[in-house]
Design a binder for these strands. Structure first.
Lengths: 201, 201
DNA sequence: CGAAACCGATTGACCAGTCAGTCAGCCATT
DNA sequence: AATGGCTGACTGACTGGTCAATCGGTTTCG
């Protein structure tokens, strides 16, 4: 039963993985459906057997990964850690996602998160959910006296997330060195910058 | 003499201004050259009389505005103000640019700055110049003892710029209230977040 | 046998950029 | 002042190429 479907699922996965590589290399828009099929070693028509459209392939990639991010933020939020440690956990998850699969993160950021005009519009609600969850962590931190209260939580959330995403962009477009050590350091540096500030204490 | 050439120059400007509106509304990719011509109240072919291609129209819009930003950062850097005040001046300029012409800023951010994969690739050098200039302000601040030295200036620069751009994105996509008071407050809040940090001093 | 996986040629829509031509103003010549 | 030649701004129908999506078919497997 499972084995009868296994090959089918494999091909589907093969197509998704191929799409990650091709989208990362050429960008969504200048990728032809034929490119995905070729990269996957699969017939053109099979892409349409598993997906309604080229858009749906990207949708699937985004949703798969973003739901993990939402879960990770949620878990951090629910933990007993300090607000600062929660933020650091979120930053850590995002950086590790990039380390684990830079091509996928590139596709998600470039084609969805930062393309809210075209493709990302569809996912604005899910994207916003992440911002809101982070804002909640900040708000709780303020209520507990761990964060100052004169900065709007939504504002802080956007600053925090924007700072991380900008680091990723720098690595993605090789504006900034992205060695393993750099990535590791970035986790705590983002939090240090946002929580402690640039000025000496 | 001047009057004989005036209408020609007007038409060029008319096309650029129309392009801002149409790009902001529909996005660069799903804008047809015919849409620009219609919006400008001009014949299709005239767009190609003044511009080599559809891309060149966007190029022109970006370059016009980005050079102003670079000049503003440069001016802030050269002033006698404190490092923190310099950063605040940069944030202020970007926010005011948005306030002055939100549609143009939307086009620049969505289609160029955050589209480094497709269109922005051409302008990566100019974009990077902004990051570098900001990093220089931070580095000088560190040398003067105004900023702590354990945060890499390039890292700080990306965080700072990323935080601002994320705020603009929030306003652009109406994820975040963008009243005039909000914009005004954002100028100092970004700087406060980045320089002082979220944690109480 | 039936159902689902798989195949790839074909089609139909779309659109950037071209190009052959019109027209209005300007100057030179008479 | 009239003529006509010239420039370049301006027009929009048309073309050539590109691709997403379809569909009629074949193979595989239970």
């Amino acid at each position: 039963m499972a084995s009868s479907k296994a090959p089918a699922i494999d091909k589907r996965r093969q197509i998704l993985d191929a799409a990650i590589r091709v989208f990362a290399r050429q960008g969504f828009h200048s990728t032809r459906v034929a490119d995905i099929a070729d990269e996957a070693g699969v017939a053109y028509g099979l892409v349409y057997h598993y997906f309604k459209s080229k858009d749906e392939v990207l949708n699937e990639l985004f949703t798969e990964r973003w739901s993990l991010l939402l879960a990770a933020i949620d878990e951090a939020d629910r933990s007993e850690a300090s607000p600062r440690a929660k933020l650091e956990a979120v930053a850590g998850f995002i950086v590790d996602s990039y380390r684990h699969d830079p091509e996928l993160m590139k596709v998600i950021i470039v084609e969805v998160t930062r393309a809210a005009n075209s493709f990302g519009r569809t996912h604005l609600t899910e994207i916003r959910r992440a911002y809101d969850q982070i804002a909640k962590i900040v708000a709780d931190g303020q209520a507990a006296g761990a964060f100052r209260r004169d900065i709007d939580p939504n504002f802080a959330s956007m600053s925090f997330y924007g700072a991380i995403e900008q680091q990723l962009s720098g690595w993605i477009f090789e504006l900034t060195p992205g060695s393993d050590a750099d990535l590791e350091q970035a986790k705590s540096l983002v939090t240090a910058t946002i929580c402690d500030g640039l000025e000496p204490r």
